[in-house]
C-alpha cells in the first residue's frame, strides 16, 4: 500500500469517515466560496482613510515613504533617495510595463538595468500589486515583469506604489488578485506572492532588533498620490 493511501486511510479511520456523509460536498463548497472571516475594524478602511493608515503603519515598521504628486515625479524621488544615502545612481529595475511608462529618461544620470536581481545589485526598483493599510504591508507577485529576486537581494528596495493600489485588508488584496487573474485569463496563482511589511530584520541575538538580516536593509516607498 502506498504511503499516500496508508495515511489517507489512517486519517479517515481516525475521523470515522463514512461515504455519503457529505464531507466532500462541504469542502468543495467551502473552498469555492472562499468566504471572508470577520475583518478587524482597522482593515476596513478605504480611500483617504486607508491611505493615511497605510502610511502610519508602514512607517511604524521602519519603511520610509516619499509621496509624489504624479508618475513624472518618480525618477526625481528615486534619484533623491539614492543621493541621500550616498548610493551610486544605478538600479536594477523590474521589466514591468507599469514602470516602463515612467519618464526615466528625464534623469539621464540614472543607470537602469532591467531584469532579475544580480548578487551585486545594491538597489532595486519594483512595482507592487497592492498595498494593505491594515499593517502597512506591500503585496508583490512574481511574473515575467516582476522577478522575485528584486524584492530580496539588494540592500535597498524601492517600490513604486500608487495610492489607488492601497486597500484595507489582505482579503481585499486577494480579491483584486483573483479579479486580475480572471481578466488576464490566467486563473492560477502566481508562483510567488510576497507580502512585505518593512525591511528585513532579526531578533535572534538576545532579542535585540537588527535590521537587514538577509533581505533588504531598507525599504523605501515612492507613493504616487493619484487618489485626487
Amino acid at each position: 500500500m502506498s504511503a499516500r493511501d496508508d495515511i489517507l486511510d489512517g486519517v479517515r479511520w481516525s475521523l470515522g469517515r463514512s461515504d455519503g456523509d457529505g464531507a466532500a460536498e462541504r469542502v468543495r463548497q467551502r473552498i469555492g466560496e472562499h468566504r471572508r472571516n470577520p475583518i478587524p475594524t482597522r482593515g476596513q478602511d478605504n480611500g483617504a482613510a486607508a491611505l493615511k493608515r497605510f502610511i502610519a503603519e508602514a512607517e511604524m515598521v521602519s519603511a520610509t515613504i516619499a509621496p509624489v504628486a504624479a508618475e513624472a515625479d518618480v525618477p526625481g524621488a528615486v534619484v533623491a533617495y539614492l543621493a541621500s544615502h550616498n548610493l551610486p545612481a544605478r538600479v536594477a529595475m523590474a521589466p514591468d510595463p507599469s514602470l516602463a511608462r515612467i519618464p526615466w529618461s528625464d534623469r539621464p544620470t540614472l543607470e537602469i538595468r532591467r531584469g532579475a536581481a544580480h548578487p551585486d545589485d545594491q538597489v532595486s526598483v519594483t512595482p507592487v500589486f497592492a498595498a494593505i493599510a491594515e499593517t502597512g504591508t506591500l503585496m508583490l507577485i512574481s511574473g515575467p515583469g516582476t522577478p522575485t529576486t528584486l524584492n530580496l537581494l539588494p540592500d535597498d528596495h524601492i517600490v513604486v506604489l500608487r495610492a489607488s493600489q492601497i486597500v484595507g485588508s489582505y482579503e481585499d488584496a486577494w480579491d483584486q488578485l483573483r479579479r486580475a487573474r480572471e481578466r488576464d485569463g490566467t486563473l492560477d496563482m502566481p508562483r510567488t506572492v510576497n507580502f512585505i511589511t518593512g525591511p528585513s530584520r532579526t531578533g535572534d541575538i538576545e532579542q535585540k532588533l537588527v535590521m537587514g538580516a538577509h533581505g533588504p536593509r531598507r525599504l523605501h516607498i515612492v507613493l504616487i498620490e493619484d487618489h485626487g
Binding site: 503603519e57 515598521v61 504591508t137 496563482m189 508562483r191 507580502f195
Partner: peptide, 10 residues
C-alpha cells in the same frame, strides 16, 4: 502585528 515576509508559494 505582521511578520516582515509572508510568502505564498504555488
Amino acid at each position: 502585528e505582521y511578520s516582515v515576509y509572508t510568502t505564498v508559494s504555488t
